[in-house]
């Protein structure tokens, strides 16, 4: 299976223009970018995709081994870059994808021009030894993982209609409600574990690319002290606090989010 269909890659915007890759985080798929894509597409060739296991990706390409580590997701990014022969990519990663971008840029820096880390967190768990505060305790994450495992029916009910590739139940194809965030429960559990147990703090210092960190005024998943930590750890970084709340500013405040990304991407002095 080729990478384009494996990752449900969509390319839109200015053909031949500078390339901007939008990478979704844990929970939903590329649809989360839908409110900022029109603005960004005026200036860039925008590349959208779903990680294997999410959205309309090819679930048969998923394996617990590969996608049990953020490197597996970074490989998705790099394989798409290779398939589309992308260079000088402005990579915009939401939530855990911000760190996926950091890993991808460390592996093949020549592919990337700039990084935009949208509400990033290099580690979700507090680390009392170093005084780092990720916002969650190990027990909190265990609780999430337990509830992911135990809430099988709840998850299914929430995303029920969804599951892609259900030829025996064609009526599900009609029902698109919740489809953007629908994932096979077993796959979602692996993605959740990989996301919330990852620790990429030590990878930040190596970033040599111009980097924009966008955080929200209030965000329970990536609180502001985490934004400050990331800013301090990445040498060539800018931190902007968006006047937005929640963990998805591209949905709750699309205009200011798109504006901030554009200003940074267009800025030749970076």
């Amino acid at each position: 299976m080729d990478v384009r269909s494996r990752n449900n890659v969509r390319v839109t915007g200015q053909t031949g223009g500078p390339v901007m890759m939008l990478a979704h985080g844990f929970g939903c798929d590329q649809n989360l970018w839908r409110l900022v894509v029109p603005t960004l597409a005026e200036h860039f060739q925008v590349v959208l995709f779903d990680y294997v296991g999410s959205g309309r990706s090819d679930l048969s390409a998923w394996s617990a081994e590969r996608y049990g580590s953020l490197d597996g997701y970074a490989r998705d990014v790099l394989e798409i870059c290779e398939e589309l022969d992308l260079r000088d990519v402005i990579f915009v990663g939401h939530s855990v994808s911000a760190m996926v971008g950091v890993l991808a840029a460390a592996a093949e820096p020549e592919r990337f021009a700039k990084l935009v880390l949208l509400v990033p967190s290099p580690c979700y768990i507090d680390d009392p030894e170093t005084g780092y505060r990720g916002g969650f305790s190990a027990a909190d994450i265990d609780e999430l993982l337990d509830s992911l495992d135990a809430n099988y029916l709840g998850w299914s009910a929430a995303m029920a209609p969804v599951i892609m590739g259900h030829p025996e139940r064609p009526e599900l194809g009609e029902e698109l409600t919740n489809a953007f965030c629908a994932t096979d429960p077993d796959i979602a559990a692996v993605f959740a574990r990989t996301t919330f147990l990852s620790d990429t703090r030590k990878d930040l210092a190596a970033i040599g690319l111009p980097t924009l960190i966008l955080e929200c005024r209030e965000d329970v998943i990536a609180p502001r002290e985490v934004g400050a930590f990331v800013h301090a750890a990445i040498p060539a970084s800018t931190l902007i606090t968006l006047d937005a709340t929640g963990h998805c500013p591209q949905l709750s405040a699309p205009e200011i989010t798109a504006r901030a990304i554009l200003a940074f991407a267009d800025d030749g002095s970076q």
Partner: peptide, 20 residues
């Protein structure tokens, strides 16, 4: 919400509600 519920809310519930 519980912490697990909060994470679910932020990663699934809130975005879906915004979109749908």
């Amino acid at each position: 919400l519980t912490v697990g519920g909060r994470l679910y809310h932020e990663t699934h519930f809130a975005p879906l509600l915004r979109m749908q």
